[in-house]
Amino acid sequence: MTNQTFTAGKNKVTFKSFGVDLVGDLYLPEDFDANKTYRAIVGASPFSQVKDQIPATYGPEMAKRGFIYLGFDYLGMGESPALPGEFKQSRYMFRLIENTWDAVSYLGTLPFVEEIHGLGVCQGGSIIASAAVTDHRIKKIAMVSGMMAADDFQWANREMVNQQIAASNASMQKMYETGEPDFVAPFGLTDDHSKEEYVGLNVNPMAEETYGYYGRDGFRGPKAVKTYSNMHIGDQAMQSLISIAEAYADKIVQPSLVIYSKSAWTAVCSTKFVEKLTNEHETLAFEEFGHVDFYYKPDAVKASTDAVAEFFNR
């Protein structure tokens, strides 16, 4: 049990995972009363995110709707430390799932939490779905612009994938031999790129919206969020190319809500996942919003958080 005193709004917290303290923000409703009980949400963010990005948007919105929301920096990201002997800016899929389980455990120690749900955005959708397979303390899950069925998306071009794997393997070998970190830009976007430079690389069809959020001059890029960088440990492909959410979709028992953009390049990651679900589930598809719009555009965030709140409150 925690002895921390909590107040309405944002509260900085820490919780143990892999033996170190992960740093999080716990958002509480405006009328928070520690003697009452509330539904709580563990938030999972996109691939490169820290808690000052999507959790800083979704946390206040869900608190406004009466929920407790926990957003946190995963192991090695933002304010959370790497393990001894390891490097910052490393996100390993199976550890992200375990970090999420520990976040659920932390929420379970709070006397004012009566029920825990999961809300994931982008890769966070895959994290939440994967965590929920064997963690039935999570009662319902919602995924927004989720990357759950990532195989068709990530492995479509096998030649390109094999190049990513080769580079990732070489990076892991280099770090093992030198003991030094090897940082790369997984999506081709560095912290110094201008919008024109990045879009000109023709990395993917989402380049403009990606830059608008993550770029040097983006809404929540490295200038706006001091704990954030687009540079990551170079062995990421060895981890991120493994997605278990799709493979275990038929094992998920919790009621599930899938929200996505029909027009987004990533839509298949939601639609293919939904096809494999055997549980009680609902989908909400939008034509007017893009993948990244759900990260921060007011109309898209309102649409998703309203739907999630209604779903979790049933």
Score class of each variant (00 low, 15 high):
Glu208Arg: 05
Ala185Gln: 10
Thr271Asn: 10
Tyr248Pro: 07
Lys262Leu: 01
Ser261Lys: 05
Val268Asn: 12
Gly188Glu: 09
Ala207Val: 01
Gly212Tyr: 00
His232Val: 12
Pro181Arg: 06
His193Leu: 12
Ser256Tyr: 02
Ala185Cys: 13
Leu277Glu: 00
Thr278Glu: 02
Ala267Thr: 08
Val274Tyr: 06
Leu277Gly: 01
Met231Thr: 10
Ala224Leu: 07
Cys269Trp: 05
Gly218Thr: 08
Lys226Asn: 13
Ala249Asp: 01
Leu257Met: 05
Leu277Gln: 03
Ser261His: 04
Leu257Trp: 01
Lys226Leu: 13
Val199Pro: 02
Asp192Glu: 15
Val203Arg: 14
Ile252Tyr: 04
Ala249Met: 03
Lys251Trp: 05
Val199Arg: 06
Thr178Met: 06
Ala245Ile: 03
Glu208Trp: 00
Phe187Glu: 04
Asp217Leu: 11
Asp217Phe: 12
Glu275Trp: 01
Ser263Pro: 05
His232Lys: 08
Thr271Tyr: 15
Tyr214Val: 04
Asn230Trp: 06
Tyr211Ile: 03
Thr227Lys: 09
His232Ser: 09
Ile242Tyr: 10
Thr266Asn: 03
Met206Leu: 15
Ile233Asn: 08
Val199His: 01
Thr271His: 12
Tyr248Cys: 14
Gly179Leu: 09
Leu189Phe: 10
Pro181Tyr: 06
Val203Asp: 10
His232Gly: 06
Ser263Thr: 14
Glu275Asp: 15
Lys226Phe: 08
Asn202His: 14
Glu208Gly: 03
Asp191Lys: 03
Met238Val: 13
Gly200Val: 00
Ile259His: 04
His232Asp: 08
Asp182Val: 14
Ile233Pro: 00
Tyr213Ile: 08
Gly221Lys: 11
Ser270Gly: 06
Ala247Trp: 02
Asp182Gly: 09
Gly221Glu: 01
Lys251Met: 03
Ile259Thr: 02
Thr210Arg: 14
Asn202Val: 01
Pro255Ser: 03
Asp191Gln: 07
Ile233Val: 15
Ala245Cys: 04
Ala249Ser: 06
Glu196Met: 06
Asp192His: 01
Ser261Tyr: 00
Asp182Ala: 14
Ala245Glu: 03
Asn230Ala: 07
Gly179Asn: 10
Ala207Trp: 00
Leu277Trp: 01
His193Pro: 11
Met206Glu: 15
Met206Gly: 11
Leu257Ser: 01
Leu241Gly: 08
Leu201Cys: 07
Glu197Tyr: 04
Asp192Cys: 09
Ala207Tyr: 05
Tyr211Phe: 09
Met206Val: 14
Val268Met: 14
Tyr214Gly: 08
Tyr211Pro: 12
Cys269Gln: 13
Ser229Glu: 08
Val268Ile: 15
Phe219Asp: 10
Gly212Ser: 12
Ala224Asn: 11
Lys262Cys: 01
Ala237Asn: 04
Thr227Met: 10
Pro186Tyr: 00
Gly234Phe: 10
Phe219Trp: 15
Met238Asp: 08
Gln239Lys: 12
Lys195Trp: 02
Thr271Trp: 14
Tyr211Asp: 10
Ser263Leu: 09
Met238His: 11
Gln239His: 15
Ser256Glu: 07
Cys269Met: 15
Phe187Val: 14
Ser194Phe: 04
Thr210Phe: 14
Glu208Ile: 00
Val203Leu: 06
Ile242Arg: 07
Val274Gly: 02
